[in-house]
């Protein structure tokens, strides 16, 4: 630090701080797509990261397999227990599937809230400083990924696409505590309408998701499963989120908050699926609305002319 506070250097430091403030101010707001220079940097670094990541997953896979072999006996016992329930579940599932098909065929061309197509992707990086919880994947706009799409692993919902670039995109995990990270969720209640609420926020001390604004008339219990409701418009319905481990009435007493243990592991992720919700359904509803409005207007006109 030789002569750090000489005049010239002090001026340079000031210029640096001003540039910092301007850059941070310009880039802080939520952006759907990165600018072209950023995309070039992201995509080229992303290509190098994929090259690094594939052999790492391979080695990690061998290690995991080794651990699995050590636990194989225990696991076998557990699986045998599960197998007893399997036959029953299977027959139930077949019955439900048939029922579902017959019911959906009654709706003409209506897609269900839960229909989607998925884009498989490889996780190529994870934010190392962990102030924000984000991961990068090797799929971008060229593969059909868009901002705000849901991202899942085989275990459940993990986050949403924060912003995209041509060949890579950044995923914001649900464990990132930012308030813009909001998901409409539902809790299946037996013999009743599902309870609707919002997943917003992350409890850093217990590492649990917080579900807020659930009507206090709904009876939430520990052990109930939470999944996406499909009502938010961005995420399809019935993506698993987790299991309730605690319930409390919120400060005003009108709604209740639930603490949710996520079903997916947010840390050990190799492969994810980006969920592209089929929008045909929503557009259909919109068209219906427009037709309805036109009809009403026509009726009003005809009524007006009749008088």
């Amino acid at each position: 630090m030789p002569h750090f506070f000489s005049n010239k250097r002090l001026i340079l430091l000031m210029v640096g701080i001003i540039v910092l403030v301007i850059l941070v101010g310009l880039t802080m707001r939520e952006r759907e797509q990165a600018t072209i220079p950023e995309q070039i940097v992201q995509d080229s670094v992303g290509a190098v990261q994929s090259v690094f990541q594939r052999p790492a997953y391979f080695v990690r896979g061998i290690y995991d397999d080794f651990i699995h072999i050590l636990n194989v006996h225990e696991e076998n016992e557990r699986l045998k227990e599960h197998l007893n329930d399997y036959a029953m579940l299977r027959s139930e599932l077949d019955g439900l599937r048939e029922e579902n098909e017959s019911l959906t065929s009654m709706y003409d061309g209506m897609e269900s809230l839960s229909s989607f197509t998925s884009i498989p992707a490889l996780v190529i990086e994870r934010q190392p400083d962990r102030w924000t919880e984000t991961i990068g994947i090797n799929r971008g706009t060229q593969h059909g990924v868009e901002a705000d799409m849901a991202v899942i692993t085989e275990e459940g919902l993990i986050g949403r696409v924060q912003y995209t670039s041509a060949f890579t995109s950044q995923i914001q995990l649900l464990s990132d505590g930012e308030q813009t990270n909001r998901v409409s969720a539902k809790v299946a209640v037996e013999d009743d309408e599902p309870a609707i609420g919002f997943i917003e926020g992350w409890d850093h001390e217990q590492d649990l998701l917080i579900m807020q604004k659930v009507d206090s008339e709904n009876e939430l219990e520990v052990g109930q499963f939470v999944s996406t409701s499909g009502l938010g418009g961005l995420f399809p319905a019935d993506l698993p989120i987790g299991e309730i481990v605690g319930v409390e009435i919120d400060e005003y007493g009108l709604t209740q908050n639930a603490y949710i243990q996520p079903s997916a592991d947010y840390y050990n992720i190799n492969h994810v699926m980006v969920i592209d919700r089929e929008q045909g359904n929503l557009e259909g509803i919109q068209e219906d609305f427009e037709n309805l409005q036109e009809e009403q207007e026509e009726e009003e006109e005809s009524e007006g002319s009749g008088e």
Partner: peptide, 17 residues
């Protein structure tokens, strides 16, 4: 900054300084 977060400038400034 560019690869891991969307706010540009924080690491550039602190690593440089």
């Amino acid at each position: 900054d560019v690869v891991y977060s969307y706010i540009i400038g924080i690491y550039m400034f602190s690593y440089g300084l």
